[in-house]
């Protein structure tokens, strides 16, 4: 087990009081596994990633739960220890590659600096490895690209460089938060292939955060569906997408225009994601759920196994396994 999170609760304190952004979120990633986290905006995907990285802002408190990374309890580590873990043991890739790169520093130097720091090499050795690293993310003519500034490169190239940076230590876990959302579909495909390739070749585990079920289906081994700060379903990607257990997953799949008949209206999910400030009692999805029962409005269902490889948090699925 590379990463294990148990019953994590995260609260944010704002002007209007406390908001619970994560509610009892548990997840685990095995070595070499790609876990996808999907959900709509505000569902808690990014907060999950940030809490693993220890990058939650000062207005956030972790009020419950634990995160263990290779047996080490991350929540007990001090800021300095977290700093040495980030980038070295846990790589990060975010959505916007332009903001993740230093704008006035040549790409090669940025990479060399990271390599120098993590591996304690000389400048010359580091530079050589930097060019190697560029080659590994399939950049044509790495020598030339190493001498360029980020603004001279396309979005896809930049994201490749961010991935090269994240993988340079090399880490055991790569956290990628919407790594392809800012890119064109054709480039998105290339970047996803690259992440999958590095995962296969090096056995790096990946936590991939996305709002796109298509992305999940093309790279993830397992998927976790989040809604309003909770995990509502978790299981093998193929199984979850082919036969969803939670009504929310099902509704989300049906709302996609991918296979819809243009003559028929799309099966939209009525209403909107609840305001976390005024979270309804009971299941957070109940007000939009076509299968809601009396109990759903009163009591929150726990995430429990519904079949061999699958868990769901839904009253309908209780006692079926």
């Amino acid at each position: 087990m590379v990463l294990e999170m148990k019953d994590l609760c995260v609260d944010f304190t704002g002007m209007r009081g406390k908001v619970r952004a994560l509610r009892n979120v548990s997840l685990s990633i095995e070595k070499g596994e790609v876990l996808g986290v999907v959900g709509e905006s505000g569902s808690g995907k990014s907060v999950t990633a940030l809490s693993i990285l220890g990058l939650l802002g000062s207005n956030a408190t972790i009020s419950n739960g634990e995160i263990s990374y290779l047996g080490q309890n991350l929540l007990r580590l001090g800021p300095k220890e977290m700093q040495s873990l980030r980038g070295k043991k846990i790589g990060m890739v975010f959505q916007e590659p332009m903001t993740a790169l230093h704008p006035t520093m040549k790409v090669g130097s940025q990479l060399a600096e990271v390599i120098k720091r993590h591996r304690g090499l000389s400048k010359k050795q580091a530079h050589k490895l930097a060019v190697e690293a560029l080659k590994e993310v399939h950049i044509h003519d790495p020598e030339l690209v190493a001498k360029k500034y980020p603004f001279e490169l396309s979005g896809g190239m930049r994201q490749r460089i961010v991935i090269a940076l994240a993988m340079s230590a090399p880490p055991d876990l790569l956290i990628a938060d919407e790594p392809t959302t800012a890119l064109d579909v054709t480039i998105q495909k290339e970047i996803l292939q690259l992440i999958k390739e590095l995962n296969d070749k090096r056995g790096t585990s990946v936590l991939l955060i996305t709002h796109d079920l298509g992305v999940v289906s093309s790279v993830c081994d397992r998927v976790m569906v989040m809604y309003a700060g909770e995990v509502v379903e978790e299981g093998k990607t193929e199984e979850v997408l082919n036969a969803p257990s939670h009504p929310y997953t099902e509704a989300l799949l049906h709302a996609l225009p991918d296979l819809a008949d243009p003559e028929e209206p799309l099966k939209a999910i009525p209403g909107e994601v609840p305001d976390l400030q005024n979270r309804p009692a009971g299941c957070a999805f109940a007000s939009r759920c076509p299968k809601a029962m009396d109990i759903c409005g009163v009591s929150v269902p726990a995430l429990e196994p519904v079949s061999k490889n699958r868990s769901a948090a839904c009253w309908l699925r209780r006692d079926t396994y």
Partner: peptide, 15 residues
């Protein structure tokens, strides 16, 4: 927009 909301807006535009 999010997927669930996108579907609502697309339906509205079509209607």
């Amino acid at each position: 927009l999010d997927v669930s909301v996108q579907a609502q807006v697309l339906n509205l535009l079509k209607e």
